[in-house]
């Protein structure tokens, strides 16, 4: 009982802090200095129409490199910890039933469509809302549908890890190319900027975002495959 009382006391203190923050908040009426710089100079600097994409890939590209590294570490740790629980060839201890005909036929229709939609989302990241992380999550949903349909299928971890490693290495190589050929690390002016609003514009942003989308999709798929293959 005293434990709940102490917890409620802590939450009361925290909520008084939040009320103080809420009362002192007044919405802005004009953009602040940083946002106005991004609004005025994004098209001239990078040629992208989606300002959030331009910030993630070029202006703050080093943060994205760090985030991709953290995701890689997470996928590796999950695969490492769960691989010690797996018995080799222990399929017989599973009591899963095979999926019905409706699910199998439906997934044969839906999986290529989902993969196509995911590829569309991360290729068009610089023109419309979208990008590498959203497209990668959609591609991972296609893998999930395949896992649900056929629980006994063993995904080849080699293919997923090869895809992920190549995408990561190419991402860093493009960053270093930006250092050598243009202004700085992960600068997108190594490819021509092109016409504003067309698909092949904004320099190297579509290429970088495609690589990020493939890498994130491969990592999420590997995490889910590891979790579903861990034996009891």
């Amino acid at each position: 009982m005293t434990k709940k009382f102490v917890v409620l006391l802590l939450l009361a203190g925290l909520s008084s802090m939040f009320v103080g923050l809420l009362l002192g908040y007044s919405p802005d009426t004009a953009l602040n200095h940083t946002a106005r710089y991004y609004a005025d100079n994004t098209v001239a600097d990078t040629g992208a129409a989606n300002i959030v994409t331009a910030i993630i890939v070029t202006y703050r590209g080093l943060d994205t490199l760090g985030e991709v590294t953290v995701l890689f570490l997470t996928a590796t740790i999950v695969a490492l910890i769960l691989s010690q629980a797996r018995q080799p060839g222990g399929v017989g201890s599973r009591k899963a039933v095979a999926a019905g005909e409706l699910l199998q036929t439906g997934s044969r229709l839906l999986v290529p469509l989902i993969l196509l939609f995911g590829a569309y989302v991360f290729v068009n990241g610089h023109l419309t809302p979208g990008g590498g992380f959203q497209g990668g999550a959609i591609v991972a949903s296609a893998t999930l549908l395949m896992l649900l349909t056929d629980p006994f299928r063993r995904f080849s971890h080699r293919l997923i890890s090869v895809l992920e490693s190549i995408s990561g290495v190419l991402f860093v190589v493009i960053g270093v190319l930006g250092l050598v050929l243009a202004g700085g690390f992960l600068d997108n002016r190594i490819l021509p900027l092109g016409a504003f609003g067309s698909l092949f514009s904004a320099g190297a942003i579509p290429v970088i975002y495609t690589l990020i989308g493939l890498k994130v999709g491969a990592e999420f798929s590997s995490m889910m495959a590891s979790l579903s293959e861990a034996e009891d």
Partner: peptide, 20 residues
């Protein structure tokens, strides 16, 4: 952008991880 990411990751993948 954030809405798309939250719908795909927070509502889809997290629930499936929990159910696995």
């Amino acid at each position: 952008d954030v809405a798309m990411t939250e719908a795909a990751i927070g509502s889809g993948l997290t629930t499936f991880l929990f159910f696995f």
